[in-house]
Design a protein around this nucleic acid. Structure first.
Length: 524
RNA sequence: GGGCCUGUAGCUUAGUCAGGUAGAGCGUCCGGCUUUUAACCGGACGGUCGCGGGUUCGAACCCCGUCAGGCCCGCCA
C-alpha cells in the first residue's frame, strides 16, 4: 500500500473529517525541498478524499516569523529589519535592497511559489499566519499559554533538553522598532502583554492584534487547534527526538487540543551537476528546478519514494530514466495475476498508488498525462525544431496528436525547452547534427558502413519523404549491402551525431531536409 | 554527550510494523523481431540482505552490540 493511502487509513481512526497542513517560512526563494513538504501533505489529503473522507489541505505561510539575518541575496540595508515579521517588511528589489513596491517580503517570495504549485496541481487554502494574529484568532491560545507558562516551560525544557532563560515568555511582543528581538515581558493583564525593548522603551501589546507572536514551538501547537489540523508532515528537523513535534504534542494538549500524529519526511537534495560544475559555479536555482520538470514527473519523484527515504533530485540523465519509468508504468501497468504472492501484490498496489498520486488533477486517467508523446521524443523534437509550431505540425504529421496540442503538451514543451537551453541538460542527450562525417566516425563504421551510407543516400533521394518511406529505404540499403541492421543504424548515428545510438532514426531524418541528408550520407 | 533515519544485485530500490524458500526496474550479456535503434519481445548472469552475536524449528525482518553515510537537539522543509 502506498504511504499516503496507509496514512489516510490511519487517519480514518480519528474520524471522517481531515485537515492536512503544511507550514513554510517565506524567508527566501522557495525550493525543491519545500515541494516535498507540500506534496507529502497534499498526497495524504488526496488519499483521504479517495478513501471517502472529507478533507481539506491548508498551506500556512509563516509570515509572522521574523527575519533572522541578512541573507546573501539581500543588501545590508536589511540589517534594520532583523527580528521584524516578514509580513511587515518591504520586499527586496532587483538589487536586494528594500524596495518600494506595496507587497511585503513574505508575499514577494510566496506569490511565484503559489503559481508553481498550481501547475503541479496543488490548490491549497492559503493561510497567512500574521492575519491569524491580527484577527485575534490566536488570542485564546496566547492567554492559555501564558496561564500555563510554567507547565509549558518545563515541557520544553524536559523534552528538548534546552535551558530556557528567566526572561522566557510564551509570547514575544513586537518592540517599538518593529522587532521581536530583545523585548522583555514585564507583565500581563489580558489582553495586554507589557514589555520593555532593547532601547529601554516601555509598551504594551494587545494579544488580539498582530503586535507579537508565540514562539515557534507553541505557535505550532496552537495552530493545530485553531485550524483543526489532523495531519501535518514535518521535516526531519522537527521530527527529531526533542524536536518541535515532540514538544508540540504535549503543548497542544495543555492548550486543550488533540494533536496530529507525528509524521516525518526525509530531505530532498539536489544532484546531477557533474563534479566540475560545482567548481565552475553552476548551481541550480531553487525555482529553476521546478520549471524544468513536467508536473506529473515531479509529483512522481515524490510519490514513488517512501516518505522516510532520502531523495536525490537530479536534473541530468536520470530525469529521462524517471520519465521512461513513469511512461512505462502508465502505458503498461503491472497486471494483477493470480500467481502473485502477497509481496508482489503489495508492490503492485504501491506502484498504482504512486501513479495515481502523480496526476496533476486527482482522479484523471494517467494515460492522458503522457499526451501520446514520450518525454524522449519531445526532447528530440524540441532540439531540432526551434519553433513550437513546427513541433506541433511534426507531431500531427506523425500521428502523435490529432489536431491542436493540448495545454498539458504546451507546458511540457516549454519546460523541455527550458531544460535543453539551460546548463542542466545532459550533454550525452544533446543532439548535435554534424555537417560532415568525422574521421573517427568513418573509421568506427568501417568500409561496409561507408558503403551502406552511400547506398542509403541514393535510396533516400527518390523514396517517399515520410517516416515509413525512410524506414523502408534503410531496410533496402541494409539488404543491398548485406550489413547487419544493427551496424547499419550505428553507421547512421555515427554520421549524424558521432555516437552509435540515438533517437529514432526515421523520425530524426524526417525532420531534416532531404538534400542535407543525401549529401551527408553520400561519402564515398 | 543524547537521539532519529538509512545501509538488500553494477545502479535505483520492494520486502522490516504482523519472522516462513530474497522480488522488481534500469544496466550488462545472449537470442528474437526480414520498415528494429535513447526501442520492443524472450531469456540469462548477478545478492554472505553493512558486520558480529543472541532469541527461534526457522531471521533481511525481533533483541544486543558494532561499523558506515545522512540528519536533529538556536532558526531551517
Amino acid at each position: 500500500m502506498h504511504w499516503a493511502d496507509y496514512t489516510a487509513q490511519k487517519l480514518k481512526e480519528r474520524g471522517e473529517n481531515q485537515v492536512s497542513a503544511s507550514g513554510i517560512t517565506p524567508s527566501g526563494e522557495f525550493h525543491i525541498g519545500h515541494l516535498r513538504e507540500i506534496l507529502s501533505a497534499e498526497m495524504i489529503h488526496r488519499s483521504c478524499l479517495n478513501a471517502g473522507m472529507k478533507s481539506k489541505y491548508i498551506f500556512i505561510v509563516d509570515s509572522m516569523d521574523p527575519l533572522r539575518r541578512v541573507y546573501d541575496f539581500l543588501s545590508c540595508e536589511y540589517e534594520e529589519y532583523i527580528g521584524c515579521p516578514l509580513a511587515y517588511i518591504p520586499a527586496p528589489d532587483s538589487e536586494g535592497k528594500p524596495g518600494s513596491s506595496d507587497i511585503s517580503y513574505a508575499e514577494y517570495f510566496l506569490n511565484p511559489f503559489l503559481e508553481s504549485l498550481e501547475q503541479i496541481g496543488v490548490n491549497p487554502e492559503v493561510v497567512m499566519n500574521h492575519e491569524s494574529y491580527e484577527n485575534g484568532e490566536f488570542a485564546k491560545y496566547i492567554d492559555l499559554a501564558i496561564k500555563n507558562k510554567e507547565e509549558i516551560r518545563s515541557t520544553i525544557q524536559e523534552i528538548s533538553g534546552r535551558e530556557l532563560s528567566k526572561e522566557w515568555f510564551p509570547y514575544s511582543p513586537i518592540g517599538s522598532d518593529g522587532s521581536l528581538d530583545g523585548v522583555i515581558v514585564t507583565g500581563y493583564e489580558n489582553p495586554y502583554v507589557y514589555w520593555r525593548d532593547e532601547q529601554g522603551v516601555d509598551g504594551k501589546s494587545d494579544i488580539r492584534k498582530g503586535e507579537g507572536k508565540m514562539p515557534w514551538r507553541i505557535d505550532w501547537a496552537a495552530r493545530w487547534i485553531l485550524h483543526g489540523i489532523t495531519c501535518e508532515p514535518a521535516g526531519k528537523d522537527h521530527g527529531a527526538a526533542g524536536g518541535s513535534y515532540d514538544t508540540g504534542i504535549p503543548i497542544c494538549k495543555i492548550l486543550g487540543g488533540n494533536p496530529p500524529d507525528k509524521i516525518v519526511y526525509e530531505w530532498i537534495q539536489l544532484k546531477g551537476m557533474g563534479p566540475m560544475s560545482s567548481s565552475s559555479g553552476v548551481t541550480i536555482g531553487p525555482m529553476e528546478a521546478l520549471s524544468l520538470v513536467p508536473p506529473e514527473i515531479l509529483r512522481y519523484i515524490i510519490a514513488r519514494s517512501k516518505i522516510n527515504r532520502h531523495i536525490e533530485f537530479d536534473t541530468g540523465v536520470s530525469l529521462f530514466k524517471t520519465a521512461d519509468e513513469y511512461e512505462r508504468l502508465v502505458s503498461a501497468p503491472t497486471p494483477v495475476l493470480e500467481a502473485m504472492n502477497k509481496r508482489q501484490l503489495v508492490a503492485q498496489e504501491t506502484q498504482e498508488g504512486a501513479i495515481r498520486l502523480s496526476q496533476v488533477e486527482n482522479g484523471t486517467d494517467p494515460r492522458e498525462s503522457v499526451g501520446g508523446v514520450t518525454f524522449r521524443h519531445l526532447s528530440m523534437l524540441a532540439q531540432i525544431k526551434s519553433s513550437d509550431e513546427d513541433v506541433w505540425s511534426s507531431l500531427s504529421r506523425s500521428g502523435h496528436i490529432k489536431e491542436k496540442p493540448g495545454s498539458v503538451l504546451k507546458i511540457r514543451l516549454s519546460r523541455m525547452r527550458a531544460w535543453i537551453n539551460g546548463p542542466h541538460f545532459p550533454d550525452e542527450s544533446r543532439i548535435d547534427i554534424r555537417s560532415e562525417i568525422s574521421d573517427e566516425s568513418r573509421s568506427a563504421m568501417g568500409k561496409l558502413g561507408v558503403l551502406f551510407l552511400t547506398n542509403l543516400s541514393s535510396f533516400l533521394s527518390d523514396c517517399e519523404w515520410s517516416e515509413e518511406g525512410i524506414s523502408a529505404a534503410i531496410s533496402q540499403a541494409c539488404e543491398n549491402t548485406e550489413i547487419q541492421r544493427k551496424d547499419g543504424y550505428s553507421a547512421i548515428y555515427l554520421a549524424l551525431t558521432g555516437r552509435t545510438h540515438g533517437p529514432k532514426v526515421s523520425a530524426l531524418l524526417f525532420e531534416m531536409e532531404r538534400s542535407t541528408v543525401i549529401s551527408l550520407f553520400d561519402c564515398d
